[in-house]
Design a protein around this nucleic acid. Structure first.
Lengths: 110, 110
DNA sequence: TAAAAGTATGAGTTCATAGGCATATTGAAT
DNA sequence: ATTCAATATGCCTATGAACTCATACTTTTA
């Protein structure tokens, strides 16, 4: 973090993190990682309802995490800012490290 | 993100991000970045109420983002996982990049 | 033991949001 | 023009969480 953090900056950063704090949104992003997907495909893949998927996509798009492309009847979404996966990877890595530490503390070295 | 993400993993990652999705918690972490602080110091620095600060610290501690040390009457807290600052820096950097892009799009190059 | 300071916790309130359902909108096909 | 398919949106509800106030807990001091 920087030396000085204004209230507005804190609010914006928190907002960004809040976008990633929902499992369904993470699942959608995860499926988009392998490429562009239509709403229907995401509904199929996530098991969520179509309105729910559409709303999450709308939220993600509003904040630039996702891009939208229309083709006929269908709307295709894709990742807007690949850096989100860096964030997720960092969190995953850190969690794994903590688990390993905890395990070695609990279970000794055997 | 990894190739396979179980529901439990998604839930845990989301939980981690949710911890960072609150401005007050970010502010507390930000103040801890320069070193260990007592609850009273954080109350003073953040302007939040003492119960509020204590609860946030309790939440952060429960998830390992913060460590607690007791000395007499006082409780001193410090950063448990420095990697959170990497996450915040990534977000800040990315936001700045997007702003610059937006500015050059809106304002041209002059 | 009593009082005071620092911190933690519980009850209650308020606010944000995820999700479901119904329906509106948009484009394609007949 | 009508009907159908894909997607978006509005309303509603329920759940979670941040905050406040009051109070309990804990350690120090008198």
């Amino acid at each position: 973090m920087q030396e000085t953090m204004t209230d507005e900056m804190l609010e914006l950063v928190a907002q960004r993190f809040r976008l990633l704090s929902d499992p369904m949104r993470l699942r959608i992003l995860h499926h988009l990682q392998s490429g562009e997907r239509s709403v229907g495909q995401l509904v199929e893949a996530t098991g969520a309802s179509q309105p729910n998927v559409s709303k999450h996509l709308s939220t993600l798009k509003m904040h630039g995490l996702v891009k939208r492309r229309q083709e006929g009847n269908m709307a295709y979404f894709s990742i807007g800012t690949p850096f989100v996966f860096d964030l997720c990877n960092s969190v995953c890595t850190n969690m794994q490290e903590e688990w390993q530490e905890r395990q070695s503390v609990l279970g000794g070295n055997g």
